[in-house]
Amino acid sequence: MDSQILEPSLYSVKAIMILDNDGNRLMAKYFDDQFPSAKEQKTFEKNLFNKTHRANAEIIMFEGLTCVYRSNVDLFFYVVGSSNENELILSSVLNGFYEAISQILRRNVEKRSLLENLDAVFLAMDEICDGGIILDCDSSSIVSKVAIRTDDIPIGEQTVSQVIQTAKEQIKWSLLK
């Protein structure tokens, strides 16, 4: 935990993962080679889960890494960074990730609906972080980039232009028929 000057770099996130209620992996992405093999990743996840699933405390120092986490019903969201990383940046990534997913799943953040929309969740993860560099932390812009099934998203969460767009298309289709 010695204090040293950080080499300024954009690579701030080491891993993002979602685990289920029993600590099993639903999805996980590692951005550096601290845990090279799948087996090491699994043990790391298991240990991390054991430490965190009881106390809902948001942040923990674990094996020399800073992990911020958040849970909902039967899902656990983790963002892992180096112990020298700004904790607040990590937590802003986590929040962006969580919010984006909860929008994609229409506030229904649980394992079943996550698996049903796995494709979109993957895309969201891809949009948040690319190879360890934070791409975006703003949930609404992530959702708009993922931008799938706009017609499924309730009217209240669409922008005006999107609503008009869908309306236009529907009219077009009806005319063609």
Binding site: A57, E58, I59, N86, E87, L88, S91
Partner: peptide
């Protein structure tokens, strides 16, 4: 926010 508290205390 716990994260903020954690960061500060650390």
């Amino acid at each position: 926010k716990p994260t903020l508290r954690f960061a500060a205390v650390r």
